[in-house]
Design a protein around this nucleic acid. Structure first.
Lengths: 170, 170
DNA sequence: TGGATTTCCGAGCATCCTGGTAGGAATTTT
DNA sequence: AAAATTCCTACCAGGATGCTCGGAAATCCA
């Protein structure tokens, strides 16, 4: 699969976010089954393995996955699928959610330099809040079940994933 | 003002969106007072005038502003400030809101090629809906009033903008 | 009529970001 | 020892970003 440039669209998520999310959902589906190698994931999702290495490095540094070297090694989620949100994944791969610098997450409010009563800041601020809330409200456990909570999915798998999602949900 | 590269942040709005939004809010604040020249706006907002020309061209093609040539000419909003949303502005300048190609606005749902029950699509779809709703829910009339609906703003201006916002709001 | 002003239009350009590839070192299992 | 796999760093081509520049066309005023 080659990347999708898809020029000139607003709020486009780069391949880092897209590939990384698929990787994490894949890991969630194999939760409890031991390590999964990048090679397996790359083949299953039809993604460039060497590129995934870069992405998974970011995910590991963010504390979202654990790697295990050597034959039979691979990656596992660092927490249960119900404890990792889409927001966690996106932030690890694409940085903090901030439409504009004046709306940076977790920073003290710094007023715009040029216009103290900047009206446009409202837009970016609301946007940042909205996006963060949406992403932080979805866990890998939900995503791993697929859109329609497909009927032909293994019952055990479904039950396991849902059970893991019971923890500290909002 | 030089551009703000601000590398590695998710959902970052480019200078097109940022400058264009400020331009439109500026026009909203001068609604009913005749044309405003780009020169005036560029000076007031401290933005490169030649660059604004490109942006305003996109806004005109999208039917959001009208231009008037010649001495004393300039731009005016094509509709009342209450009838133009932040979503209109962003779409005109940065394209349709679509985190991923499989979530394109206004297109028939096309399933992902590689994974029919693609779980990750849920994320991007929810994101697209959420962002669009947030942006389409804010009008230039509201933005033109500024964050705190500042007390020292001219009463007449405030009243005029609010009155213009009464039309077909949701 | 002749400027002055201002929108309109297209080309060009340096820099940064995107989406990878390549090569090798370290670690673990067999 | 050999295979598998993570881990790490460097590199690179192409596209997007964020502008600048030069000029043509319209409009107003003296």
């Amino acid at each position: 699969m080659l990347g999708n440039p898809l020029s000139q669209t607003a709020f486009h998520v780069s391949s880092r976010g897209e590939y990384g999310m698929r990787l994490m959902v894949d890991l969630a589906r194999h939760w409890g089954e031991g390590s999964v190698s990048l090679h397996t994931i790359a083949e299953g999702e039809d993604l460039p393995e060497a590129y995934l290495e870069q992405l998974v490095a970011a995910l590991r540094k963010a504390g979202l996955v654990n790697g295990k070297r050597g034959a039979g090694g691979g990656y596992t989620l660092a927490r249960a699928p119900g404890q990792i949100t889409a927001g966690d994944v996106v932030r690890a791969l694409e940085g903090p959610i901030e439409p504009q610098i004046c709306t940076a997450e977790g920073e003290a409010v710094v007023n715009c330099i040029h216009e103290p009563d900047c009206g446009t800041r409202l837009v970016w601020l609301k946007l940042q809040t909205t996006i963060a809330k949406a992403l932080d409200g979805m866990t890998l456990a939900e995503l791993a079940l697929g859109p329609g909570a497909r009927r032909d999915q293994k019952r055990t798998g479904t039950q396991r994933l849902q059970a893991e999602g019971q923890g500290t949900r909002n």
